[in-house]
Structure formats: structure tokens, C-alpha cells
Design a protein around this nucleic acid. Structure first.
Length: 359
RNA sequence: CCAGGGGUGGCGGAGUGGCCAAUCGCAGCAGACUGUAAAUCUGCCGGGCUUUGCCCUACGGGAGUUCGAAUCUCUCCCCCUGGACCA
């Protein structure tokens, strides 16, 4: 694969890359590139973390990069997920891994790492302290959005340590590319600043798109782009705003039917988002079956065509929804089968479903 | 540790001895209206029933006072705000 092809693939992943130039240099001089993403195991895993994550991981590995998936159990603990119950968090972590194994991820170039293993090394904590000393409290507090928190709300001391840990993760994992969501960019930027100061490198930040939630987006209050992304992203605190990886066919149907989808509007339309970022990534075409009185069946080969018709009201939301339901269901089927047939996985799912989700 | 203020249903927030299963808002659910959703309107919204009614469990935990307590007393736990301590 040529350098240009690799760059092109990575650009498909990154909604934002800091910087393209740094990426190019990195690809040229390093043949052992490691990229990473981290996850707080909390509650159920939704399709952005499952399918979208898989799509992006596979593009990265195809570009010759090794990918580390950090199961951030200690981070979730610090951030009080799952009621601050570390044992539950770890059960959820195992469940996440089962999902990733079952949804088509290129596992030959992926390594799962547990934060609880990283923290066993005293050098990890030394680095956390070094990092914490580089900037003022305020600077770390300003990264609160990475934890899904607002800097204006009351944070605990653990939530100050959290961004320091997340920065340390990058260097301990040897990640020269941080490939997380747009909501994580603040810490990654901080890492670019701190890295060289502490004798490490300046990681290339490849931030992927955040899939929006299914419900009606809140009014646009002249936020900047990142804040807006975070404001409308899928959230586990809004029950039906996300499709979970182990949802049943009925769940998918209910959620998509309830999804916000104004006719003719393509901006911030979750159903179209799913077509663009998920369905067209996994299927070659989307077939819409509809009665003759509404125009008969159509096949779309690209998102552009589909969007065009939708915008011109040639494609009705309901017809689209029916197709989306069917295709999403098809994508989740192997995952469901895995959790049905593998006893260990089945037990994990059962436990996870019995846990109450907390923010 | 001291002083003061608090802990109410998924969340926010009323209520300060009976009319309280608890005003109201949000969220949620059902229906009407739209070929989806949204908006709007109607009903439901602690649990269970033989559902114009009845039973159970409830207002941080426990113990009391009272015919009767979310509402009063005691006690314990937790949170917030100040302060003290930091040899």
C-alpha cells in the first residue's frame, strides 16, 4: 500500500487530524505505529462504540497500524460509572470485549489492554504525577468534557486525576496516534503539548466523527463545533437515543421508528447519519422497498444519491426507516448470535443487563 | 470536631400533623392528528388487584409521640456552607 493510500484511509477515519503533516511524517519514518482508543465500561455498548469503532479500527489496521483498545476500568471507577462499583465495571469491560470480538473487528492487529493492568506499574503513577505538574488545576478541569462532564459542575478530585491518567495512557501504551472521538480532543491536545516537555513524542490526533443520538437534537445555541457534537451525541442517559449492540429486532424497530427524522431535512438527521457512517460503510447499496403508490422500490449505491433524494422529498422518512431497521438488524445479528450461543458471553450480557446505568 | 442548612417518586422541585400515593415541570407510556419522527391535543404515570373502589410499600436509616406523621421528638448515616484543627 502506498503512502498516499494509507493517508487516504486514515483521513476517512478522521473527521479532524492534528496534523496531516505530522501524520505523513509519522507514516514515513515509523513502521511500528500504534494507535489507541479508550472506553469506560459503563452500561451497554452502543453501535458507535461497536460497529463504528470496528469500521474505523479496520481502516487503521488496513493502513498498517496496530490498534490498542484500552478498557478504561479505573477511569470509569474514577468517573463514578456503574455507581462506582469497580467489579461491575470490569464485568461490563469483559462484555465490551465480547462484543468487539463478535462484530467483525480485525483482531489480528488489535490488542485489548486493561487500565487496571497499567496501574500496577509504579512508573505509570510517576508519569501521572509528572503530567499533573505540568499545568494548572484549571487547565485539567477544562478537559472535563472528556468524561462527559461539564467543567461548571462539581467535580471530585478523582475527576482531576482522570485527565492526567488519560494522558499517561498515551505514552505508556506507546501510542503515536490517538484515535478517539471528537469529544476527547482536549486531552489529546494537552498530550501534544505535554509529550515533548516530558521527553515523549507529540501524538498525532485522529479524531473520528461522533454519531448523533436518535432523539430530536437540542436547540442550537451558538456553540462551537465540538460542543455541538457533544451536545447531540448518543448518550446512555437517554434510554432510547442509542442502538445497543445486543438490542433485539423489536428494540431496533422501536428506536428507529421513534427517531427524529424531519422530511427533507438532511442536517442533524440521525437516520441519515446512520446511513452515511454505518450502513454505506458496511453495505454496497441500500434498497428501499416501498409500495408503488409511493414510487416503488429504489436502490441507492451511495450516500450522496440517497441524501439528494431525501432532500428533494423523493424519499420519505418512513420508507427510509424501514430499510434502516432491516439493515441494522442484519448487522447486529451475528452479535446477538454470539451472545446466544457462547455461554460465557451470555452470562456476561445477563449480568450487564441487570445493572442499573448511572451517569 | 464545631455552627448553620439540607436529604421527598427516573430527574428537578412543592408540601411542614389529617383533605398526601404526595401540587407542578421535565422525561416516559398510550391514544388522536400527520404515510416516520417532531409540534399540538387527551389520558396514564410507586406496586398489585375484582380499577368510579380496595390492598400493599413509600417522603435518607432506625426508634418514639399521636386516634393519625413526609410533616413533631430522639438517634444514626450522608451531602452542602462556613469555621476550628493542621506541633
Amino acid at each position: 500500500m502506498t503512502l498516499e493510500e494509507r493517508i487516504k484511509l486514515i483521513q476517512e477515519v478522521g473527521e479532524e487530524i492534528i496534523t496531516d503533516e505530522d501524520l505523513k511524517v509519522l507514516l514515513q519514518k515509523d513502521n511500528q505505529i500504534i494507535a489507541y482508543d479508550g472506553f469506560e465500561p459503563s452500561g451497554q455498548i452502543h453501535i458507535a462504540q461497536g460497529i463504528l469503532r470496528t469500521i474505523n479500527v479496520n481502516k487503521m489496521t488496513k493502513a498498517g497500524i496496530k490498534f490498542k483498545m484500552l478498557v478504561a476500568d479505573w477511569h470509569a471507577y474514577a468517573n463514578n460509572k456503574m455507581n462506582g462499583d469497580l467489579e461491575r465495571i470490569q464485568i461490563v469491560g469483559k462484555y465490551f470485549i465480547e462484543v468487539w470480538k463478535a462484530c467483525g473487528m480485525d483482531l489480528s492487529h488489535v490488542e485489548f489492554v486493561w487500565a487496571s493492568d497499567l496501574v500496577k506499574d509504579p512508573d505509570y503513577w510517576k508519569l501521572v504525577l509528572q503530567i499533573s505538574k505540568t499545568n494548572s488545576l484549571k487547565r485539567f478541569i477544562r478537559t472535563a468534557e472528556i468524561m462527559g462532564r461539564d467543567e461548571s459542575m462539581d467535580l471530585t478530585a478523582a475527576q482531576i486525576i482522570y485527565p492526567c491518567m488519560q494522558t499517561a495512557d498515551i505514552f505508556i501504551l506507546g501510542a503515536t496516534i490517538t484515535q478517539l472521538g471528537m469529544d476527547q480532543r482536549k486531552v489529546n491536545m494537552l498530550a501534544r503539548e505535554i509529550g515533548p516537555q516530558l521527553g515523549f513524542w507529540k501524538p498525532v490526533v485522529v479524531s473520528h466523527h461522533m454519531l448523533m443520538g436518535l432523539s430530536q437534537p437540542p436547540a442550537d445555541s451558538n456553540q462551537d463545533k465540538t460542543s455541538r457534537t457533544i451536545a447531540i451525541k448518543m448518550s446512555k442517559s437517554h434510554p432510547d437515543s442509542a442502538i445497543y449492540m445486543t438490542d433485539t429486532t423489536q428494540d431496533i424497530k422501536r428506536k428507529i421508528m421513534k427517531a427524529w427524522a424531519p422530511e427533507g431535512i438532511t442536517k442533524e438527521n440521525p437516520v441519515l447519519e446512520y446511513c452515511k457512517y454505518i450502513l454505506f460503510e458496511r453495505f454496497n447499496e441500500i434498497k428501499i422497498e416501498r409500495p408503488d403508490k409511493f414510487g416503488g422500490s429504489v436502490v441507492y449505491k451511495s450516500y450522496k444519491e440517497l441524501e439528494h433524494d431525501y432532500e428533494n422529498k423523493q424519499l420519505h422518512p418512513l420508507d427510509l426507516k424501514n430499510a434502516v431497521i432491516h439493515l441494522l438488524d442484519q448487522l447486529l445479528d451475528p452479535v446477538r448470535t454470539h451472545f446466544e450461543e457462547n455461554k460465557e458471553a451470555k452470562d456476561l450480557l445477563k449480568q450487564v443487563q441487570s445493572f442499573q446505568v448511572t451517569r
